[in-house]
Write a protein that binds this DNA or RNA. Structure first.
Length: 185
DNA sequence: GAGTAGATCCTCT
DNA sequence: GAGGATCTACTCA
């Protein structure tokens, strides 16, 4: 949280500050693809050493971007759910297909929600497995931190099928930030 | 403003 | 052959 996710494809730089994330707690988390130690072609990446990207297609439309966080054989992941745009806003708008020349700089749907932010940064499934130490895709730390008071916790979104695990407080977000998905309070 | 359907395709059973 | 870590637009009130 508070760090900056940067993509640099074809010399075009786009980046955004991370304002909303969800944790997926490995093999004991029903909402995780790795629940019960499941291991498939798709989620094989989750069992790799931390620091790589895990991207997959959801509902046939949306690319969801995760960061693998733990050691080899321990499939923990963080889903990046929302960014606050920093660099390359025009580029991102083009990728999303938004025009709105009048008020587009205030458009907070650009990187709001996991599907949108992946599209905005130009991240697709073939980036799955990319190291976040690469020059194309990485997370930068510019020293900025959100005050603890601004960080809120809640259950995760869109994981109702996971039973009790859907209630776990694994979602973290910046209070009042307009790019956070879900309903503002 | 709230609630719901439709999009759309890869992955696993 | 079914369903999903989602989003948008449209309906109805």
């Amino acid at each position: 949280m508070g760090k900056v996710l940067v993509s640099r494809f074809n010399g075009i730089i786009t980046s955004g500050r991370i304002v909303e994330v969800e944790a997926y707690n490995g093999i004991i988390d029903k909402a995780s693809h790795a629940f019960g130690g499941r291991r498939t072609n798709r989620n094989e990446i989750m069992y790799a050493n931390g620091g790589v990207a895990y991207v997959y297609l959801c509902y046939g439309i949306h690319h969801l971007f995760n960061v693998i966080t733990n050691n080899k054989e321990t499939p923990h992941a963080i889903l990046i759910r929302a960014l606050e745009p920093v660099i390359g806003i025009d580029e991102m708008l083009q990728r999303v297909g938004k025009t709105k020349p009048d008020s587009y700089r205030l458009d907070n749907t650009l990187t709001r929600g996991p599907g949108n932010l992946s599209k905005a940064l130009g991240i697709f499934t073939f980036h799955s497995g990319t190291s976040l130490g690469s020059k194309e895709l990485f997370i930068a730390d510019d020293g900025f931190v959100f005050p603890k008071k601004q960080i809120a916790v809640s259950p995760r979104i869109g994981v109702d099928y996971a039973g009790n695990d859907a209630l776990l407080p694994y979602r973290f977000y910046v209070k009042g930030n307009p790019f956070v998905s879900g309903k503002p309070k």
